[in-house]
Design a protein around this nucleic acid. Sequence first.
DNA 1: ATTTTGACGACGT
DNA 2: GACGTCGCCAAAA
Length: 115
Amino acid sequence: MEKPFFEQVYDLVRQIPYGRVSTYGAIAQYLGSGGAARMVGWAMNKAHNQPKPVPAHRVVNRIGVLTGKHHFDGLNTMQQLLKSEGIIVIDNQIQDFQKVVWHPLVELHKSQNSL
DNA sequence: ATTTTGACGACGT
DNA sequence: GACGTCGCCAAAA
């Protein structure tokens, strides 16, 4: 039996490289549940309870808007973290989003990563 | 076990 | 192209 859905989400989010972001839909799709995008976001909520740190700030919606920023400690915590990684965020919108987006299915497929 | 939710996404208007 | 509605899927109450 595989890990619970949530844990798979955390594991994948931790695999997001520095200076890159991912989308809920892409993550859900990687897990095989394309339509479960909302589930991914919800998993992020529980991520705070996780023993391992989850870079939830690197997860945004399909348009690159920091929809979940208000779930963080402060109001602009998420934006600050992204900015620290070289990602420019203006008005909750990631600039050059398409350039920093990280598709797990595509990226991991190129590496043929096995575990 | 049933119902609601939840940091979304796609389609329709 | 922006706004609205419905659908998804899995977990929590």
